[in-house]
Design a protein around this nucleic acid. Structure first.
Length: 194
DNA sequence: TGCAAACCATAAC
DNA sequence: GTTATGGTTTGCA
């Protein structure tokens, strides 16, 4: 049985679908309806689900953690994502995206180099991200460090990056499955949109 | 700058 | 099988 929870935290609606403590899909939006619609659209077919008006303790902790991520904070909470049924390539892209630290961004092409495949394929994987904002697809931009696209609208993407400013000045490499992924300070992106 | 061609995993037919 | 479709990239005028 799939359990769905939605809650308003700090003026934003967050929603999750859980199954066996694992996150099937998540969302955020300015209205409860929009947040729930996203969840419902991404639910597997022919699976019963139930919408709970009040989150239980597990769901509360998860929603709280997602809110922290949304707010641009580092979170220590480990969120269990049900990604094993996704295409393998998509899983690799998600994993690489999760490796981007707060305060940094990388490009579609850079991820493609790290996990194989091409930049457009990476963009495709991002476009159907089931776990916003847990999988920080807002930290992936074009190779010239302009924004690229975003499901929730480019304004939302820009605001995310503003909240994640950390004052870093140098690019660096992070390790994903033994290969390196180059990441750049968010400031490098924001400069172009001042 | 701007445009065209190469790029590559998915989903839909 | 085949085709259409992107949240791209690169090269070249």
């Amino acid at each position: 049985m799939i359990e769905i929870y939605a809650q308003n935290l700090a003026n934003t609606w967050f929603a999750v679908a859980l199954c066996d403590q694992k996150i099937l899909t998540s969302s955020f939006a300015t209205s409860e309806k929009t947040a729930l619609n996203y969840i419902l659209n991404n639910l597997p077919f022919n699976t019963p689900f139930q919408l709970f008006p009040k989150p239980n303790p597990t769901a509360t902790a998860i929603l709280q953690a997602i809110k922290e991520i949304y707010a641009g904070k580092d979170t220590e909470v480990k969120l269990n994502l049900a990604s094993e049924d996704l295409p393998v390539y998509t899983q690799k892209v998600l994993k690489a995206t999760l490796a981007i630290p707060v305060g940094y961004v990388t490009s579609y092409g850079a991820i493609a180099v790290a996990v194989g495949g091409g930049a457009r394929a990476v963009g495709n994987a991002m476009a159907c991200n089931l776990f916003p904002p847990i999988v920080p697809c807002h930290r992936v931009v074009k190779s010239d460090l302009s924004l690229g696209g975003y499901g929730g609208g480019l304004g939302v993407k820009l605001e995310f990056l503003l909240r994640e400013k950390r004052g870093f000045t140098e690019p660096k490499d992070v390790s994903v499955d033994g290969v390196f992924l180059r990441v750049f300070p968010v400031e490098d992106v924001l400069r172009k949109y001042a």
